[in-house]
Amino acid sequence: MRVLSFSEKGCIRKNNEDSFLVLSDQGLYAVADGMGGHRAGEVASSVALHELEMWIPRLEGLEDLALENGITEAFIQANRVVNESSLTEPENAGMGTTLTVLLIRDEKVVIAHVGDSRAYLWRNEMLTPLTMDHSLVGELVRLGQISLDEAKKHPQRNVLMRAIGADPTIEVDCRSIGLQAKDVFLLCTDGFSNMISDQELTEEFLEPSSWEERFEKLRNLTLERGAPDNFTALCCIME
């Protein structure tokens, strides 16, 4: 398996509040998009990934539902630590982060998710979203109250309904799917997905070029479009 990644502050932000984690020996991959005042978002995303990494040994030997429950507990622990820090340390007040995790175990993949960072599967020349945005506009789209095009321009498109650290408790989306040869998984923050549409991803993935070339083209395209937010993408390519 190959792993490609990039994480940049973009063209406007002064610092990068995104973080990502690659633990190939454990089959774990994650992206996090932090939020909060004066570097608090950067703290939130890095703390959440640190807690996730510390939790990994507890997942050894777990399978099926027990493994999903174990990853959910890792999210709960990360939420607890980030929330407590936001309440007890003034410089971290109000901080939080998205967290999207991919865990590859044998012939199975577990996807766990909170926030509006995303996970996609590229299989048989088709792109499938594996996560739902836990955002206000995401909920409005699901309810049929606004269209996808309206969501892209909605004044409250950055409002999250769920985030690690925002509340003392957290609800985690967690699911498992079977792994197939030549599967490609993409994890990304909204600074990337807001600039590159699903249709554009599909078209680029169909191009007769290497994954390295495709990934670099998408990175450059995000920058060319002004990259108003930090943006991170991580690609796991099964071979």
Rank of each mutant, 00 (worst) to 15 (best):
Y120M: 00
K14S: 14
N220P: 01
N124P: 03
M1D: 01
T131S: 07
G165S: 14
E139V: 02
T98E: 06
A32E: 01
G27F: 08
M35L: 13
N69S: 15
N158A: 13
L23P: 01
I237F: 09
L59P: 01
R219A: 04
L28W: 09
V184P: 09
F192V: 00
E63W: 12
K153H: 12
N69Q: 15
I71E: 09
M54S: 15
V172R: 05
E213D: 14
S176E: 11
A44N: 08
T100A: 06
L121Q: 07
L136E: 02
L186N: 01
A181C: 10
E212D: 15
E8P: 02
E68D: 13
R162V: 10
N124D: 12
A48Q: 07
A119H: 04
Q156A: 13
R39W: 09
G10Y: 04
K14L: 09
V172S: 09
A66I: 07
I146N: 01
K9N: 08
M132K: 13
N69M: 13
K9A: 01
S86H: 05
V22K: 11
A48P: 06
M132N: 09
I76V: 14
E224N: 06
N194P: 03
L179R: 13
G27W: 08
E207R: 15
R157T: 02
T128I: 15
A44Y: 05
A233N: 05
S209G: 00
R123C: 00
P228F: 08
I237N: 02
G144P: 08
V43C: 07
G70L: 03
T131D: 08
V159F: 13
E204H: 05
R118L: 00
L52M: 14
S176A: 14
T202A: 12
G191Q: 04
S19C: 10
Q180S: 11
E239H: 12
E216P: 10
A163M: 00
Y120H: 08
F205H: 01
L21P: 02
T232E: 11
L49P: 10
A78L: 01
K9V: 00
P168F: 02
M195Q: 10
D106P: 05
K108L: 12
R2I: 02
C174H: 02
H134R: 11
A44S: 06
L4H: 03
N79P: 00
M95D: 09
R39H: 06
R225I: 10
D106W: 04
L148Y: 13
